[in-house]
Every structure is written in structure tokens, then in C-alpha cells.
Design a protein around this nucleic acid. Structure first.
Length: 340
DNA sequence: AAGAGCTTCAACCGCGGTACT
DNA sequence: TAGTACCGCGGTTGAAGCTCT
């Protein structure tokens, strides 16, 4: 038995709202509130609209203090950072931007911001080749006729690509390969982890609703919420987590590296979005900083891949069966892989 | 001037989650 | 416990406006 329709589709008006309809809806809600029942609301007002349509109109357009267009640089950065971390959870991203609606942010991302980030970078010729290669790999992965579990979602690929851009994949950074890409190992990411912002968003979301889709279930998955890409990688059948570094993914993790790197992220995002600097190639000092960071990480954590899996809640049997290195080579053949 | 192609964004659709009976 | 109704979300669509040729 299918779900009953929310309204009589024959007798509801569709399409753009007239000023009269807007006025009726606004006046009623301002005086009486929604009454906790959107479905009944149009009948009370005498509107030939579906309740869902009324709700959408109110939330996205008529509600007080709604801002339209004119996104600021700061808003761009917040959207970008949260998209990298949590993906297309537009309602949660919108919750961080007062006056913005999820629909607005979704449209803005799909039509403008994405193009800004992926389409307008001016790169040296070598970097363009790498860009083309990554794009090709992304397409190959998406078009590959394998089971869905073996492919990444377009969103995940998009975020990986964005990560890679920010990470300077197209520069000569020796630590920018796939295996060493902190985008995939967020706990060790000196710049992009940006856990403060993500944690804030997640906390807010969780306090808003106990049923938040982001509510972590670390006991089962061992994953952190702002490692969303990693989650998708895992679910996709690629199934690897920071194997060599023994990355204990934990939501509580914070480090001075992460804190101090927020400023770096800010600058890189500004550069990426607004092309404030002519080049994205990391300078020597920057690279040395990365080096120190990684040295610190690798010196500290020497856990084996299998140990990492078991330490993070996976069956021992599963952990021992996983050969993460070969998985990467098998499933991500074209991705830039640098073992160490 | 015109029309083809592109971009934007409001609105719709279907689904998962949850509350209620 | 099952069935039903509703909410809220993310993905998609299509009309209107804009740009290009």
C-alpha cells in the first residue's frame, strides 16, 4: 500500500505564488502561527495550495528576516568549509547562516559557488594536466559499470576534489598525494580539518533535534561527522581509513596544529574563491610547516592498519582481512598514490 | 532584431523519520 | 505493534530572464 497523498492533487494550485496568496499566508501565520499543522493550514486560510507548498513558501520567502542573494565572502567560506566537511546537509549549513534558507544556499552552491571553486582557477600548465587527470578519474569512477557500492557519490568526489585543490594537489607539495591526502584523513589534516566550525555546526544541529542525521554513532562506526567523505569512501567499498598513520578518528580530537591552521584555511579559501593571490602554490615555509606536522604525526602514531580498524570498532576478522594498500590501488588506480 | 543557448532560482517531488492513534 | 499522517530534507525541474551570436 502506497503512502496517501498529502493533499488532493486535483484541486491544488501549483506554480508561482501571487502577491494575494502571499499576503493571506503571511497575515494568517503572523496572527495565528502555523498551528503545528501545515496540511490543514491552507484550508483554514482558503488557499488552494498544498500544505507543503505553504510551508516552503513561508520558510523560504515570507518568514521575517530572510536574506536573498548578496552572499558575503564570509558566508561563502562558511558554506564551503561546511560543504567539505558534512556535504550537502543544506539545512545544517543554513543553520549557521542567519537569514539564509537551505534552498537558497543549495541554489547558490549549485549555480555559483561550485563554479567559482572548480571552474575559475588559473593554474600553471602542469597543474592543468593534473586537474584534467583528476576530472577524468572522477568521471571514470562515476561512469564505471560497477556496483554502486564501489563508486563514490558525485558529492563525495566533488568534496575530494575541493579538498585536493585546497591541499595544493596541483602544486609540488610532496605531501599532497592521495594516500597522504589529509582530506581523507581529517584528524591529521593541518588545515582542512577545521573541526571547530564543524563541531559547532554539529552541536547546534544535535541540540536542535535529537534526530539529527548528523548525530554521531561513534560506538558503531568509529567515524567522526566531519569525516563525511571518509564515511562515504568507507561505505563505497573502498573501505580504508588512515591505515599507515593509525588514525584514531575521534570527534574530540583537537591539536594546536588544527587551531593554528584555521587561519591558513581562511586564507586559502579566500584565495580559492576570490583569486586574491595569483598563485596557489605553497611557498617553502608553508611546505616546511606541513612537513613538521606530518613528522609529528608519523612519529607519534605507528599503529598498524589492522590495529587501527580493530581500535575503531570493527571486527578483528574484518580488520585482518583488509589490505588497505591493495584496496587503494585496486579501486583508485588513477588517483595519485604515493606509498611511504 | 531575433532566436538559440545558458543561468538562476522558486517550487515541486519523493522519501525517510517520527509522532500519533 | 502496525498503520497512518505529517514534517523536513535533499534532489530535481521548469519558467523566466539574461547573454551571445
Amino acid at each position: 500500500m502506497g503512502r496517501a497523498p498529502c493533499c488532493d492533487k486535483e484541486n491544488v494550485k501549483k506554480g508561482p505564488w501571487s502577491p494575494e496568496e502571499d499576503a493571506k499566508l503571511k497575515a494568517y501565520i503572523e496572527e495565528h502561527g502555523t498551528g503545528g499543522n501545515w496540511i490543514a493550514l491552507p484550508h483554514k486560510i482558503g488557499l488552494k495550495r498544498c500544505g507543503k507548498s505553504c510551508r516552503l513558501r513561508w520558510l523560504n520567502y515570507l518568514r521575517p528576516n530572510i536574506k536573498h542573494g548578496g552572499f558575503t565572502e564570509e558566508e561563502d567560506q562558511i558554506i564551503c568549509r561546511l560543504y567539505i566537511s558534512i556535504g550537502s546537509r543544506w539545512s545544517i549549513i543554513a543553520a549557521q547562516l542567519p537569514g539564509r534558507t537551505d534552498n537558497d544556499i543549495k541554489n547558490y552552491w549549485n549555480t555559483r559557488l561550485k563554479k567559482k571553486l572548480f571552474g575559475k582557477r588559473t593554474e600553471p600548465s602542469q597543474s592543468r594536466k593534473l586537474q584534467a587527470m583528476i576530472d577524468q578519474e572522477a568521471n571514470d569512477l562515476l561512469n564505471h559499470e560497477s556496483s554502486p557500492s564501489q563508486t563514490l557519490s558525485a558529492s563525495a568526489l566533488e568534496r575530494m576534489q575541493l579538498h585536493m585543490q585546497l591541499q595544493g594537489l596541483y602544486s609540488n607539495n610532496p605531501f599532497s598525494g592521495f594516500y597522504n591526502n589529509p582530506a581523507l584523513w581529517p584528524n591529521f589534516h593541518p588545515v582542512l580539518g577545521d573541526q571547530r566550525v564543524c563541531q559547532e555546526a554539529i552541536n547546534n544541529a544535535n541540540s536542535d533535534s535529537s534526530s539529527s542525521p548528523l548525530k554521531p554513532d561513534a560506538s558503531k562506526s568509529g567515524l567522526i561527522m566531519n569525516a563525511n567523505i571518509l564515511e562515504e569512501v568507507d561505505h563505497s567499498g573502498l573501505g580504508f581509513h588512515s591505515p599507515s598513520s593509525g588514525g584514531a578518528l575521534s570527534i574530540e580530537t583537537s591539536s594546536s596544529n588544527l587551531e593554528s591552521a584555521n587561519a591558513g584555511l581562511q586564507a586559502e579559501l579566500q584565495d580559492l574563491i576570490y583569486c586574491k593571490n595569483s598563485s596557489f602554490v605553497a611557498d617553502e615555509e608553508h611546505q616546511l610547516a606541513d612537513l613538521d606536522c606530518y613528522k609529528e604525526i608519523y612519529d607519534e602514531k605507528e599503529t598498524s592498519a589492522a590495529n587501527w580498524w580493530t581500535n575503531n570498532g570493527f571486527d578483528e576478522e574484518l580488520a585482518s582481512a583488509i589490505n588497505t594498500d591493495s584496496m587503494i590501488q585496486e579501486y583508485a588506480p588513477g588517483m595519485i598514490y604515493r606509498g611511504h
